[in-house]
């Protein structure tokens, strides 16, 4: 039997397949950055900001709650201000777009006749003396059913 004809167990060489695929995926992914199925998963690789501003709801009594605890949304036209306009209104803010998208999709999918006036706010968090403190910036007026 020649060297070429000699056999080896599939199980013994299978991990080489894994190594080859791992290396190939990394090299191609860092080239395209993001094209299915390649991605470098760098969504949290940027420098940490000192503050972050998720969306929230403030009712007429001043109580703040999560957007996804309300239904029957009805908002003023022409839609919420853009991210850039919000920045102009509230100062430079950082957000996590995944959370914004979930909140705003909730509003879109739970629309209704409104009834109770509320404000959509950016709750701007930062660390001060070891604790997270916040200030609120209203960005839009809406109504909710409950």
């Amino acid at each position: 039997m020649t060297e070429e004809e000699r056999t080896v167990s599939v199980q013994q060489v299978a991990s080489r397949v894994g190594w080859g695929v791992l290396a190939a995926y990394l090299v191609i992914a860092f080239g395209v950055h993001h094209a299915f199925p390649f991605y470098i998963f760098d969504m949290y690789s940027m420098p940490a900001a000192e503050s972050v501003a998720p969306l929230a709801v403030r009712d007429a009594r001043g109580e703040v709650s999560e957007i996804r605890t309300h239904e029957g949304w009805r908002c003023a036209t022409p839609t919420l201000p853009s991210f850039a306009a919000t920045t102009a209104q509230c100062g430079t803010i950082q957000t996590v777009e995944a959370r914004d998208k979930d909140d705003l999709n909730w509003i879109a999918w739970h629309s209704g006749n409104g009834g109770q006036p509320v404000e959509i706010i950016r709750r701007i968090w930062r660390i001060h003396d070891g604790a997270a403190v916040s200030r609120d910036c209203a960005i839009a007026r809406c109504e909710v059913t409950r």
Binding site: W73, R74, C75, A76, T77, P78, T79, L80, P81, S82, F83, D100, K101, L104, N105, I107, A108, S111, N113, G114, R141, C142, E143
Partner: peptide, 17 residues
């Protein structure tokens, strides 16, 4: 953008931007 999608939400409020 997510906020653009809200153009489909009916709006009774008189406050227009």
């Amino acid at each position: 953008r997510p906020w653009d999608a809200l153009g489909s939400v009916a709006a009774p409020s008189s406050t227009a931007r």
